[in-house]
Design a protein around this nucleic acid. Structure first.
Lengths: 332, 332
DNA sequence: CTGAAAGCGCTTACAG
DNA sequence: CTGAAAGCGCTTACAG
C-alpha cells in the first residue's frame, strides 16, 4: 500500500507537507502543492482514513440502529437518513434491531469511535439509555423514546391514537378492535393511551376481547386478525397500531373473502407511502411530510459539528394528520 | 479514554499481555488473565478498534452499495445482507446508488479499508469494474453484472423475460406493452432480450409505440402508463421490467378507474414479497426463495476469510419461476 | 511556508 | 508464559 511517506519521497518534501496539502492546502506554496498533488496522482495514493481517525479521534461515521425494513416506516427513515448523512459527508453503519443485543451493538460502537448514533430501537425503561448518555457520544432517538429525557424526534403518538379512533367512532363504529405491539415501547404505549382516551370520551372503553398486544410480525398479525373475524360477533372496525401491521391485517381480511370497508373497516397509524397506493388506500394518521428521518439526522449532525449539552435535550414532537382514504366506512 | 496501557498498569502487566487476553486468551496464565479481565471491567475498557485495524489491516466491515429502497427488491436484499453480515460478525456500511458517484464511493472505501464490497449498482460497461478488480478488495456483485467476468449472483434475466412474456402470449395478448429501465444495465438489457425472444418465437415483435425505456422512478412509470392507456388502441397487457415499476403502473391504471386484469393485464419481474399481498396479487417471475442477498453476502465473506482467485470468478445464476396471480387474465 | 519529532492505541515478532 | 521495542499511517504542535 502506498502511504504518505511514499508520496513525500517522490515529491521531495516531508510527510507533514503531504498531510497539509490534504487538510489545509492553502497553507502550502502552490509550487510545492502541485509537486505533491502530482506524486499523489502518479502513485494513485488514497489516504488511510483509519490512521487519520486514530489521531483525529473522529471517523465521520454515524451508526443507525433501526427497526426491521419489513416495516415500511423504517424503509422511509433509513432511506432519508442515509441520503442526508451521505450528502453531509458522513458514512452510515447500519444495525437492525434484534440481530444483535443493543448492549453488544453499543459496546462495538464505542470501540469503533462512531461520531454519533441514531436509534429507533429503545424501550420505555431501557437500561441502555443511561449508558448511551454516559458515553458522551452524540445521539438522537427517533420514532421511539425512553420514559423521560434524552434527544428525540417522535410523532405525538397519543394524539395520533386519539384522532384515528375518533374517526372510527364518528363513522358509527362501536365494536372497534385494536391490535398493538408490546407496550413497553413508547409508540405503542402512547398510541394505546390515545385510543383509550377517545373511547372513554365517547363513553365506552377498550374491550378486552377486542384488544390484542402481539409481536408486530405479519404472521402474528394475520393470526389475530383471523381470530377476531371468526368471533361470533366480530368487530366492525379494526385499528392497527402501525400501517405495516394494517397491511398484514388487510391481507388476512381479504384472504377470508371479506371486503374492506363493506364488511369491516381498517385503519393504521404512520401514513407510510404505500398507504396511498390505489390498490391499498389505507386510512391512516401520520406525519409523512415532516420527514422524521431527516430531522433526526440533521439534528445529530448539528450536535456532532457544533457540540451539545445534556442539559438542553432536543425533543421534537411532530403533529399527526388524519388521512381518510378508502378502508374506513360508515358502520352498516 | 481508557486504553490498554491503563489496563496494563492497573493489572500490573505489560500492554502485550492485555492484548493477548483479548486476542489469544489461552496463551496467558489464568491468574494473570483474571487480573487483566478484572482491570478491564473496573475501568470499563473498550478496545479501540480503529487502532487495531491500523495494525491488523482488517476492519471486519463490508460496504453495501445498493439501489434505492423505494424498490422493494432492494429492501429484501439489504435486509438479508445486513442480517447475514451481522451474524458473521461483520459491520455493514451502506451507500445508496446515486447519492454519490460510484467512483467517489469507491475511493472512500479504499481509504476506509473495508474488507469487502457488495454491489448491485454497476452498469454493463462500467469503467469502475476494472478499478474494483485492480483494487484487490474482495467483492461480489448482485442483481446486476458487467458485460463479462467478475463475481456475481444474478437471476437468469433473459429467461425471466421470456417466461413472463410467453405467459402473456399464452393468454392471447398481442398488444403487449413493455416498460423497461435503461438498457445499459444488465437486468434491463437481458430482460428485454428475453421479451424479444418470446415475441419473435410467437411470430411477432416489440412494437416501438408499446416499448418504453424510462427512469424507473414511480412518477415516470405513471406518466408512461397514462400515455399508453390513452392511446387510440391501448395495449391489452403491460409488462414492467420490475415489480416495483409494476406497482407504480398499477397505481396509475387504477387511478384511471380501470380494472386489472379485466381492462388490462399487468405483470412484473422479481417476485418481491409485496407482490403476493391480497390487495396486489401481482403475476410475476422471480427467485424469491433463493435469497439472492444471502448468497451474495455468504460468498463475499467466504472470499474474505478464505481468499479468492480472480481466475476462478464466482458466477451464480438463479433460475426464475413463474408465479401466476390475479393481475393477468385472458385477452377479451 | 516547511520539516523533525512525538504520539494516537493497538499488535506482533523477538527474546527470554 | 511474559515484556520491551518497533511499527501501522496518519496529524499536530513546535521551531525555524
Amino acid at each position: 500500500m502506498v502511504s504518505s511517506k511514499d508520496v513525500a519521497k517522490m515529491a521531495g518534501v516531508s510527510q507533514s507537507t503531504v498531510s497539509r496539502v490534504l487538510n489545509n492546502p492553502a497553507s502550502v506554496k502552490p509550487v510545492t502543492r502541485n509537486k505533491v498533488l502530482n506524486a499523489m496522482k502518479e502513485l494513485s495514493y488514497h489516504p488511510n482514513l483509519i490512521a487519520r481517525s486514530l489521531v483525529t479521534n473522529s471517523t465521520r461515521t454515524i451508526a443507525l440502529i433501526t427497526g426491521t425494513l419489513y416495516n415500511g416506516f423504517f424503509v422511509e427513515t433509513t432511506n432519508s437518513i442515509i441520503n442526508l448523512a451521505t450528502s453531509r459527508g458522513f458514512k452510515t453503519l447500519v444495525y437492525f434491531e434484534g440481530a444483535m443485543k443493543l448492549r453488544d451493538v453499543f459496546d462495538s460502537l464505542r470501540g469503533q469511535k462512531v461520531d454519533g448514533i441514531l436509534l429507533s430501537s429503545i424501550t420505555l425503561d431501557d437500561p441502555m439509555f443511561e449508558e448511551i448518555k454516559r458515553s458522551q457520544i452524540p445521539y438522537m432517538m427517533f420514532n421511539r423514546r425512553p420514559r423521560d429525557g434524552g434527544n428525540y424526534v417522535v410523532l405525538d403518538n397519543l394524539l395520533a391514537g386519539e384522532i384515528i379512533t375518533r374517526h372510527l367512532l364518528d363513522l358509527g363504529h362501536q365494536r372497534i378492535a385494536y391490535i398493538s405491539g408490546e407496550t413497553n415501547v413508547s409508540t405503542f404505549f402512547e398510541r394505546k393511551l390515545g385510543v383509550q382516551k377517545a373511547l372513554s370520551e365517547a363513553g365506552t372503553s377498550l374491550q378486552p376481547e377486542l384488544f390484542h398486544v402481539i409481536d408486530t410480525n405479519p404472521t402474528d398479525v394475520e393470526k389475530v386478525t383471523l381470530k377476531l373475524m371468526h368471533m361470533s360477533q366480530p368487530p366492525t372496525a379494526i385499528l392497527c397500531a402501525t400501517d405495516a401491521m394494517a397491511f398484514a391485517c388487510m391481507d388476512a381480511i381479504l384472504s377470508l373473502g371479506l371486503r374492506i370497508p363493506d364488511d369491516v373497516s381498517l385503519a393504521g397509524i404512520d401514513d407510510i407511502s404505500m398507504a396511498s397506493h390505489h390498490a391499498i388506500q389505507l386510512t391512516s394518521v401520520g406525519h409523512h411530510k415532516f420527514r422524521m428521518g431527516e430531522i433526526a439526522a440533521e439534528n445529530l449532525i448539528e450536535m456532532i459539528e457544533h457540540g451539545f449539552s445534556p442539559d438542553h435535550p432536543r425533543q421534537i414532537v411532530l403533529q399527526p394528520e388524519l388521512v381518510i382514504r378508502k378502508t374506513t366506512g360508515r358502520k352498516k
